[in-house]
Amino acid sequence: MAQLLQHLINGLAAGTIYALVALGYTMVYGVLKLINFAHGDVMMVGVYMGYATAFAIGREARGSFLGIAAVFAVAMLGCALFGFLIERFAYRPLREKPRLTALITAIGISFALSYGFQLDIGFLPGASPRAFPEIIEPTEWLIIGDRDVVVWNWQVISFLIAVGLMVGLQYLVFGTRFGRAMRAVSWDHRVAALMGIPTDRVIALTFMLSSGLAAGAGLLYAIKDTSVSPLMGLYVGLKAFVAAVIGGIGHVPGAVVGALVLGLVEEFVVGYAASTWRDAVAFGFLILVLLVKPGGLFGRVAAEKV
């Protein structure tokens, strides 16, 4: 029983992080109908920005509230800018081209980033994983019984940050003018443009938003894993993508539910079955969901109109 509870907590903690990344996939898919394959790698770049900041501000400042805020702010803003650049120079020129073109571009960017960062030329960090500075000192926040169930402080903090960001996002999408514009673009970007919505700006802002969220999620993941490596984006990104598809891609609450489900499934398989199968779980689950309910849990399969 205690073991079950522990797995539940770990699964939820992992799930909230996946959820933040999955939201990025879902938002971009919503406005552009593009699977932003490079999303995970943009996240990785953001984590390295946070890593550099944490070192720049020094060991003492790192642990303080302001220090943590600075690390998150630099990573999220830097990453938003990076996402904007990618959208502006790689995706925007291809917007009216067939969708496959944009997908190949996204795969290319993903590949260039995750393997480019493995070089050790100039500022690039090299292939080996690095220890991520402990900007949040890990302490046990709650202990039940004789260490049967342990809840770590970073689990609580990352859960709170993740939930806070999600609530903020929900408000942004459904409660503001910008959110309305975003939903209009997602409905039909040509008609939205005719109605006077600056579609280019909305799409660019959506990209910045999703990249910023990804950077935040990436930092939480790095804190959890206490390491950062160029390939982390590929794996976290793919799992988050799987989560978004499970929830029904393009559906904001769906992405969150999908991510929590995936986090739990992964944790339970690792905990009760075999830990070496971890990387196969997400994909097996994905294929299963797509076969049974191809639109995801909440999505609808819309007939393609001509």
Binding site: A102, I104, T105, F111, A112, Y115
Partner: peptide, 20 residues
């Protein structure tokens, strides 16, 4: 071998932008 991989990625991007 190391440099080859990022170059392949960039090659895909450049190809899609200039000669899809």
């Amino acid at each position: 071998d190391q440099i080859r991989m990022p170059i392949y990625g960039l090659l895909l991007v450049v190809l899609m932008l200039s000669r899809p």
